[in-house]
Amino acid sequence: MLLKEIAEKLSLKTFTPQVEMAKDVKGGYTSDLLSDVMGASKEGDLWITLQTHKNIVAVASLRELSAIILVKGFEPDRDTVEAATAENIPLLGTDLQTFEISGRLYNLLK
C-alpha cells in the first residue's frame, strides 16, 4: 500500500511536508531499540517508535525503511526533522500508543 494512503487511513500527521509520500510500504516494524531495528527490520518497512532523536533518521536511511511513525503525540527534535527532510525519510506522527497504531497498521497491510 502507498504510504500516502496509509497516512490518510490512519490520520497520521506529517513533520516533513516536503518529503515524497508516494512510496510503497511492504510491512512494518515496531521497536525502540535501534540495534534491533538495524538487525531485524526489512527494507521498505514502516517503523513505529517513541524515539524522537536524530539517530532514528540514520537508522531508517541506512536500512532503507519507508518512513517513521512517532507514537503518543511525541514531537521530533528539530535536528531530527532537518535530517529526515535531507535524507527523504517521511517523519509521521500519531496520538495513538504503540500497541494501537501497530495493530491498525497490521490490519491495513495484512
Binding site: D32, L33, L34, S35, D36, M38, G39, T49, Q51, H53, N55, I56
Partner: peptide
Amino acid sequence: EMGFGAGMGLPN
C-alpha cells in the same frame, strides 16, 4: 534511553 546499548551491537 536513546535506544542504544541493548547488548546487541557486537553480536550483530
